[in-house]
Nucleic acid binder design. Structure first.
Lengths: 165, 165
DNA sequence: CGCTATTTGATTGTGCGCAATATGATTTGC
DNA sequence: GCAAATCATATTGCGCACAATCAAATAGCG
């Protein structure tokens, strides 16, 4: 800290917990990609499959709620998955506003092959398998950030609870 | 756990640490949006500004390394920021391959107004300011997930270290 | 000098992700 | 019943995000 001019006003990258979350999310995406490519899935599509394997026959909005995604994201994504033979989209007979998403044969068939994915990820993150250094670093930063963040017990309003941004 | 058919093969949403990271990243984005909109910034653009306020005059690749983004993402983003008067993009005199990104007057002027952003975020997350429930829930899930994840001390290869996917 | 390999950004194509809006079905009020 | 409000999804437009590819410039070698 000699020739530089650090802001001291909280406007630094490293002090932002949100940046750790942001960067770790990307790192996870990069970690999953080579595992999901052979299955023909993207990461959000994999999440949709997880949701359907857990409970089949959900509406678009139910999936959106589970994944925190809205219809503008899900509609084209589900159409691609339908075109790939993973799911079927049918209007509800009782309420024609709703679109029920159900597993197609291709989606059922994928379930067995997908079982290896979480194992491979856990292995990669835990030990030295694939290149999970980005995820490792991100999780370390998250641990540090979450540890430094003190719980605001009710009425802390001064915004100085450490590193929360 | 009666009428349902939970996978038991690790293929569930809730058991995935990566999903907590993914959902929390979106929640942070939604939290920042109303704070950054008045400044005319998106969240990634805000990150670029943080990087430049911390150290001005970096190359595209240096910014990309700091933010874990590649040129395919940064080039159009930086061009939009240049059009908005926030930064300048100039070729290096010594190596014409390099593009140096420097703060333009508009970017300097934004620094004062941006100082409130981390405070507002910290306040919102710590207490009950804006709607930060998504972020709260995400951070809680991350704390739980990171706590459950046991450190693989060197040679854990069986992928059963709890919740890491 | 010429040649090749490397480095650095830019470009292109695909796929999220969300706001705003549109469309059409269902419910509510009267 | 019928009009208005509400609800569920689709569409459009913009902005990330990355892989693959390209072009320009530098570096290094004979």
């Amino acid at each position: 800290m000699s020739e530089r001019d650090p802001p001291a006003d909280g406007l630094t990258l490293a002090d932002q917990l949100c940046f750790s979350v942001y960067a770790t999310a990307h790192a996870f995406n990069r970690l999953y990609k080579p595992l999901l490519d052979p299955l023909g899935l993207t990461y959000p599509q994999y999440l949709v499959m997880l949701a359907l394997w857990e409970r089949d026959g959900r509406t678009v909005s139910a999936i959106g709620e589970a994944l925190s995604l809205d219809s503008g994201t899900l509609t084209p994504l589900l159409k691609r998955m339908e075109a790939a033979g993973l799911v079927r989209r049918t209007r509800s007979a009782t309420d024609e506003r709703q679109v029920i998403v159900t597993l197609a044969p291709g989606g059922e068939a994928l379930r067995g092959r997908a079982a290896d994915v979480p194992k491979a990820v856990a292995c990669a993150v835990g030990a030295a398998g694939i290149d999970a250094r980005g995820v490792q670093a991100g999780l370390d930063a998250l641990r540090a950030g979450l540890g430094r963040e003190r719980r605001a017990s009710g009425s802390d309003r001064d915004g100085r609870t450490g590193r929360t941004g």
